[in-house]
Each structure stands twice: as C-alpha cells, then as structure tokens.
C-alpha cells in the first residue's frame, strides 16, 4: 500500500498557482521529509494528500485506487497549530475519544496526564494540546500520517521524546510518515528521504 500524488497542482485564487506538477509517493513504514520555503505550499500539499481539499490538477492514489469518500481516512493529518484543530467547546476527553478509544499505554507514551482530560482546550498549553492531536491520529486504521510542523511548538526535550514515541509506534504498525519541517537538522535526524518542494 503506497500513497502517491501525481502531477498535483493547486491554487486558491485563479491562476495564482501554489503547487504545480508535484509528484510524490511514500511507502508504508517510510519516513519522508518535506521541506521548503514558508508559503511554498507544504501545508497545501499536506491537505491535498490527506484528502481535505481536492487538487485543481492531478490525482491522489492509495494503492493505485482513489480514496473512498465517507469512510475513515487512512491518511491522517496533524496540524501545525493544535488550537485550530480542536473544538474549543469540547472537553479534552471528548477530543481524544472522537475517533477511537486510545489505550492507557498510548497515553503514557505521550505523557498525557489523566487530569488533563477534564480540562477545556484553553486550559492546556500548545504542546499539551498537540499530544492529543497526535494520539487522535493514531487510530488503528491509520496507514499514513502527515506531521505538519508537529513539534515546532515544543521544547527540545519534549520534541525528542515525542518523536521517539511517535516513530516507534509508526514503525511497529508500518505506518508511513511525512515529516513537514523547516528545520533541516531535525529532518536529517528523522527521515529516510527528503523531498524539497519549490525552487
């Protein structure tokens, strides 16, 4: 099962192309880095691959088939800004269990404290919220995860710990990961291969 995008192109305003002729593919268990200028379309590409927006040109294939609508998406996206991906009017427990019930072992791997579950999103820091977004994406049916600047909000120690747990789980489940980041040193540490977007 590979995830691939062929000749992808996209714009938000007519003829202001953000992406043009992008062809990218990732195998299960692979860790692919995605780097490029800010504003060059990394997040747009991530959203297209995850099926949130339809590209103006080109196609997305999972195992040479188009993605099925109205079922669980095997490609999950973790956003750069967790506060934008969480319903501010839900308690964290509801946010966490929206798609499946994570085991205690996963919560422990990401050091999510039980007392956080009863809090509102505004009562947690950015890094704490991001852990919920990560766990939420690790549904048993997930095949690919796109991590868009996943740990830019985190301090170095937490960053290293989270990548350790996250990649450990992804390797054991053979999940393919796309790591979107500006930080070359981080990409070099984590990735098997790096794709440079734009010029």
């Amino acid at each position: 099962m590979t995830l691939s995008g062929e000749n992808l192109g996209h714009y938000y305003q007519r003829d202001r192309w953000i992406l043009k002729d992008v062809t990218i593919s990732i195998a299960p268990g692979e860790v692919l880095g995605l780097s490029g200028y800010s504003g060059c379309g990394k997040t747009t590409l991530s959203r297209i691959l995850a099926g949130y927006i339809a590209p103006r040109t080109g196609n997305i294939w999972i195992d040479h088939k188009a993605m099925e609508p109205r079922t669980f998406r095997p490609v999950q996206l973790i956003y750069q800004h967790p506060e934008k991906a969480i319903n501010p009017k839900w308690r964290m427990r509801d946010v966490l269990t929206e798609s499946y019930a994570p085991s205690q072992a996963i919560l422990d791997a990401f050091e999510i404290k039980n007392e956080w579950l009863t809090r509102w999103p505004v009562e947690l820091s950015g890094g704490e919220k991001q852990r919920f977004c990560i766990v939420r994406a690790l549904n048993p049916a997930t095949k690919f995860i796109i991590a868009d600047e996943m740990t830019t909000m985190l301090d170095a120690i937490t960053q290293a710990k989270i990548w350790n747990s996250f990649l450990g789980i992804c390797k054991s489940r053979n999940i393919g990961v796309i790591v979107v980041s500006h930080e070359t040193s981080l990409l070099n540490r984590l990735c098997d291969r790096i794709y440079h977007l734009g010029k």
Binding site: A105, I106, A160, K161, N164, S172, S185, R189
Partner: peptide
C-alpha cells in the same frame, strides 16, 4: 537535534 537528540531516545517497547 543539532546536539545529541538521540540521548533522549530510550529503547521502549512501542508495540501499542
């Protein structure tokens, strides 16, 4: 990541 990123990597069992 520029320094010893890996030091924080412990050999945990992550088959969860």
């Amino acid at each position: 990541p520029q320094n010893d990123f890996d030091l924080e990597f412990k050999g945990r069992d992550l088959n969860i």
